[in-house]
């Protein structure tokens, strides 16, 4: 399109209600498209430009900062009721560029790009010198803590056998020396008390996810593991696009991802959390 009068953008205040409306839609978009990790909440609107759009409507080019909450992406809790992850817990921020179309008074997302990054170690330690920092999710101590916690949860659980879906965050705590982990599990078609080979268990078609928090503390001669899991409402089976030529839809099945419990599970102090359906 040729440049000319009338094709420039209009400036809008970042705290203008119209800008906020576009930004809140953008945050909803982020949270409804998250596949893993935690829901985010709006922290600050950085920039906004409003461009005319042909043949009608306007496009909001908007930059926003978000902060991670403590609600997992699969948690049905509305983000408005979720706490923001505090600096002491090693906060994570999101930096997002959006293009949001406003047409006939309705907003819709045209483009989204977000990067998230944890606060710097220096900044966390400035606020709280003894606070544990985020640990790599593939750290052997983290992996061990998750395996021990899940085995302990399944050992005390009379219902389905739960498989690991995702390790969401982890911290190596200096005092007392322990590993704190948060992870997601999902129910399988196996009964936890009867599982002999976890590799043969399959996730249920109607997914039932759980979110667990656990702490593994080393002690003389063994380890203590405390784990609490909250199981969310079942997720309805979504119709999957079928290749041409197939008539009968079949529910998508996630291949089982075996998680073998540690061979010699230490004596565990287990807090099995409420199975909230």
């Amino acid at each position: 399109a040729p440049h000319g009068p009338g094709l420039g953008y209009r400036e809008l205040n970042c705290d203008d209600p119209e800008t906020e409306q576009a930004a809140l839609l953008a945050v909803d978009y982020i949270n409804s498209h998250l596949l893993r990790g935690y829901k985010h909440t709006l922290n600050q609107i950085d920039k906004v430009k409003v461009w005319p759009r042909r043949p009608m409507g306007e496009v909001f080019e908007i930059e926003i900062d978000t902060l991670e909450t403590t609600c997992h992406a699969l948690d049905p809790t509305p983000v408005a009721n979720c706490s923001v992850r505090q600096l002491q817990e090693h906060a994570v921020e999101g930096d997002c560029d959006f293009r949001v179309l406003k047409q006939d008074g309705q907003f819709s997302v045209l483009f989204a790009k977000c990067d998230s990054s944890p606060d710097s170690a220096e900044d966390v330690l400035k606020v709280c010198p003894d606070c544990p920092l985020l640990a790599p999710l593939n750290d052997t101590r983290v992996v061990h803590a998750v395996e021990a916690a899940l085995a302990a949860f399944n050992a005390r659980n009379n219902g389905s056998y739960y498989q690991l879906v995702e390790v969401s965050r982890a911290q190596l705590v200096p005092f007392p020396v322990s590993t704190y982990v948060e992870f997601v599990v999902a129910a399988t078609d196996c009964v936890s008390k009867e599982v002999t080979d976890p590799a043969k268990c399959n996730l249920l078609a109607e997914k039932q996810y759980g979110f667990c928090k656990a702490r593994l503390t080393g002690k003389f001669g063994g380890e203590d593991v405390a784990v609490t899991c909250v199981v969310f409402q079942t997720q309805p089976v979504l119709p999957q696009p079928q290749p041409e030529g197939t008539n009968s839809p079949t529910p998508a099945e996630t291949p089982a991802k075996p998680l073998s419990p540690p061979a010699n599970l230490p004596a565990a102090t287990v807090v099995v959390g409420p199975l909230v359906a």
Binding site: E11, L12, N13, C14, D15, T19, T41, L42, N43, Q44, I45, D46, K47, V48, D65, L67, V84, L87, A91, E93, D119, D123
Partner: peptide, 27 residues
């Protein structure tokens, strides 16, 4: 030569439309 005196403009607070307010804390 007639010179118009300059009109003094009162210095008010500069309005910065962006970035907007911080809702929680800045990292």
């Amino acid at each position: 030569t007639v010179v118009q005196p300059g009109v003094a403009v009162a210095a008010g607070p500069v309005v910065r439309p962006c970035p907007g307010r911080i809702r929680h804390f800045k990292i």
